[in-house]
Structure formats: structure tokens, C-alpha cells
Design a protein around this nucleic acid. Structure first.
Lengths: 260, 260
DNA sequence: CGTTTTTTGATTGCTTTTGATCATTTATAA
DNA sequence: TTATAAATGATCAAAAGCAATCAAAAAACG
């Protein structure tokens, strides 16, 4: 018997490479060997095949995504790679809800950042955000962009605290698209930082509709600072990992649930 | 033998260089070595390649963005590099004026951006800014950072407009460090955008001391939107290009002039 | 079950990339 | 201006990556 790690078959390897490439735009051969439990030779063969198909461009040491025209602000933290596929699909579902001339509040967080990336072409909306990374993402072009004023929380690269109220209170949003760290029926919506929580509350109170984007891992989790009950949200977009009873409960509370 | 630092692939390096160049307009080889975990030789090779492609222009010590005519009308020749150096020196002089526990307003602009870079170690101050680039520069660490809220003006990557007043009016600054596009005795201080002018006025009105950083090229120039008379400034820092009569005039008006 | 085909991983020699050295050029300061 | 320091380009050796080949292992097939 071989080691516990299953051998990865060719089509599956290709899928993984595609995913990694979409996430990072650049992959190293060495990296892929570990990820795929395959030898460098196999990885190179795979890359060569995929290059023939036009999926990627090989470079010394690895490969880059062929649609590398997209620009990323900086190669900073990339722990956001976890569950990236689902997050992206959640973001895409949220994108479908945005209508022309909407004024949208976009919260900080990795899922909402994915959404920001999808908004680069939407010049027909106004986007208000407290996320420095979202702003950087859209600094080159895209929606009319309004930043919330306040103190930078470096850990999350968001603008938070009491000062944010000064900006937010003068605005109204058609939709507020929020992220969360924890979500339970009993404890409601929670996040790591009180300043963050305050700003979230402000934003939600000014919104006609609150759309919550949450990877299913967040369900059942509780963090430090409470920023609202689950029924603050009008619409939850999550992935298939959501427990059925939880989904039923939300629907009973008149919260729309979209599973992607 | 290299240790823990991740290897950076060639296309990654190029992308990072492009990004940095877009943010700063000028990059030093030394700087890039650190950023890319590469040797000077490699960095020079990369720069040479990119120069061939026309992405940048190499100068002694590093490279300048080829599209640095954002605010510089005559930015094609060697003057760019020279001006960049002078701007850095102006920024350095301004740095010397900043004292522990100061609360500083930092205006947008290329010279002030140079100053932002010098502030990465100053954790002993509070910095308020409307410059997205300055914020990005300091997003990793440095002073307590407060961003002004308002609309993003993409051309200059600054936050401007009436909304900025909501944030600024609640704050007081020990020093406001301002840039300008034009500066004459008669027309005063002028900039390209009315929204920009409004925000500048707001910031200066809340400051105990107004320090103006201006490359000497700006002297004698007039732009579109007036944001104050020259005597709004308490202190001008500029380079040797300042005409002597102009300097005398300012001093007669009780404005301190520092020439670097 | 055995044979054939495909896929994989190891070995080898070759190419590209990288970083160190050093003489030369270029900037800065006195 | 000259002196001093810094940056550069050329060269070269080491390291990393690569393609080709081949044998072993898996999968497919009868």
C-alpha cells in the first residue's frame, strides 16, 4: 500500500493547477510538486500540455496565467487562498444582484475583495467601501468610488472606528454587502474587532438591503465583537456547506438564502 | 545558498516592479533588491529588459516610470530623475520638522508621497491623509494612519470633495504638509481640480502650522482651482531653483523658506 | 489473467538564470 | 574643481530549471 495521500489523476491535476493559477496568477513547479504529490517531470508535462491548450504561459520555474493583464496591487498576505473557489462563486452570485445605478456599500474581507475584483467594469454604480484593498483593486478604474474616512486597521486593511460614522451617516446605500467572521443564530454576527463591528453597524443601518456573503465555514463560529443579529441580513449568500437546519431557520426568519 | 525567503519568479518580479513604479514613479535598485529578494545584478537585468520593452527608463540608481507625466508636463527627459531627487530632498527636510506625538495632515502629490515613504518607521505620530498612495505606502506599518473619507479622484489617487469635510472638521492637526501645482504671489496656490482644492482648504483650516512642499518648477505656475493665498503657508520647503526675489517676498510676508 | 498501452518518476547532459567580483563610469560633497 | 562614494556593466562560476530518454508502475483491454 502506498502512502495515505491519494495519487492525483491527470484531469484532477489540471483542475488544481487551473485553480491555483486563478488564485495566484503565478505558480512554481516546485510548489505544484508538493500540491499534487507528483514529480517535477509530471508537473512539467502537465504544464506543457496546458500551454498547448493556451491555458497558461510557461516561464522559467513555473507558469503564469494567460490572462495576466489583470493587475494585483501588491503581493502581500495571501492566506486568502483558503476556500478561494467557493468565495469566488459567492462573489459572483453577489455580482448578479447589483443593478445599474445602485449605490453599494462594500465591507472589508476576503470574499468581498473577490467581489471588488469583479466590479472593475461596472462603471454604472457607486461603490462605498472601508476596505483599503478593495480601493486599491479599483483604483485604476471602475465604479465611482467613495472611501469611508477613519483609522486604518492594519491587520485587515480596513478603515474602522468612530470616525467612519462621520462619512457613513451622510450616505444611503441601496445595498450593503457585508462579510462576517462568525455567524450563529444565538450569538448573531460577530467579528474580531470592536472598531470593525461599529463600522459594520453604521453601514448596515444606512442600507436598504443587507446582503451577507459568508463561506459556510463561518456558520457556527463566534468571534469577539457582535455587530448584529442574523436577521439584520436580508439575504445570505453561501456555499453548499451550510447545514440544512440552519438554512431552514433563516428562511423561516424571512432571510433569503442563496447557495452556490 | 538562499534560506527561507521565497523565490520570486521573473514575471512576478516584473509585475512587482511595474506596480511599485506606478505608485512611486521612481524606484531604486537597492529598494527593489529588498522587495524582490534578489541581487542587484538580477534587478539591473530586469530593469534593462523592461527598458527594452519601453516600460520604464533607467536612470542612475534605479528607474523612472515612463508615464510619469501625471503632474509633470515636461517629464520626458532627464529632468524627471533630477526632479525626483530634489523632491526626495524636500521630503527629507520636511521629515526633520516632524516631532514625536505630532498629528500631521499629509496632502496628496508626488513630493508628499516621498515624505510618506520616509515615515515608515515613525510610529510616534498620527498621520491623516487623503492620499491613497500614501496610505498604500504605509499600509504595512508605520504611524497611526487615518484616512479622510470621500470620493476617489483617480487621476491623482486622492480622496476629495465635500464628503472629506465630514472627516476633517472633527480633527485638528499640529502640522499640515501640503503640495501644490501652481504658486504665484498674485494668484496664490492653485491646483487642477476644484474638489481637490476644497479638501486642501479644509485641511489647512484645521492645522496649527501649514508647511508647503513645492518643487521650484511650481513657482510661477498657475493651475485651475485656487485653494489659498501664499500666506496661507507658514513654511515653504523648496529647492535651489527658487527665484531670489520670490524668496525675499515670502520672507517679508513672514513665511519661513527652507531651500534644500 | 496476461498483454498492451499509457503514465509516471529517475537519470543524465544541457540551458538559463542568478549572484559575486572587479574595473570603470557616474554622482555627490567638499 | 577634485576627492570620495556609489552605481554600473562585464565576466564567470554556481545553482536551478529543463528536455530527452528509459525503465517501472498503472491503467486499459482482450
Amino acid at each position: 500500500m502506498r502512502s495515505r495521500t491519494e495519487k492525483t489523476l491527470a484531469p484532477e491535476r489540471e483542475k488544481i493547477i487551473r485553480t491555483l493559477l486563478r488564485e495566484r496568477r503565478v505558480v512554481r513547479v516546485e510548489e505544484l510538486c508538493k500540491e499534487l504529490h507528483a514529480s517535477p517531470a509530471t508537473v512539467r508535462r502537465d504544464l506543457a500540455d496546458m500551454e498547448k491548450k493556451g491555458v497558461l504561459r510557461r516561464v522559467h520555474g513555473g507558469a503564469v496565467s494567460v490572462e495576466s493583464r489583470l493587475e494585483e496591487p501588491l503581493a502581500f498576505d495571501d492566506k486568502t487562498a483558503i476556500a478561494a473557489r467557493e468565495k469566488r462563486r459567492i462573489a459572483k452570485a453577489a455580482l448578479a444582484l447589483i443593478q445599474p445605478n445602485d449605490t453599494i456599500y462594500l465591507d472589508g474581507g476576503s470574499t468581498t475583495l473577490d467581489l471588488a475584483r469583479l466590479l472593475k467594469d461596472r462603471t454604472d454604480i457607486t461603490l462605498v467601501t472601508n476596505s483599503l484593498r478593495a480601493a486599491a483593486e479599483l483604483s485604476g478604474g471602475g465604479p465611482r468610488l467613495i472611501l469611508v474616512g477613519g483609522e486604518l486597521r492594519r491587520q485587515a486593511q480596513t478603515i474602522v472606528g468612530t470616525l467612519t460614522a462621520e462619512t457613513i451617516k451622510t450616505l444611503h446605500f441601496d445595498k450593503a454587502i457585508m462579510g462576517t467572521i462568525g455567524m450563529t443564530l444565538k450569538e448573531g454576527l460577530t467579528t474580531t474587532d470592536p472598531g470593525e463591528a461599529f463600522t459594520k453597524q453604521q453601514a448596515m443601518s444606512q442600507a436598504g438591503e443587507v446582503i451577507l456573503l459568508a463561506h459556510s465555514e463561518k456558520i457556527g463560529g463566534i468571534s469577539f465583537a457582535h455587530f448584529g443579529d442574523v436577521d439584520c441580513a436580508d439575504h445570505l449568500i453561501t456555499d453548499k456547506g451550510i447545514p440544512e437546519p440552519f438554512k431552514k431557520q433563516l428562511q423561516k426568519m424571512n432571510i433569503k438564502v442563496t447557495v452556490v
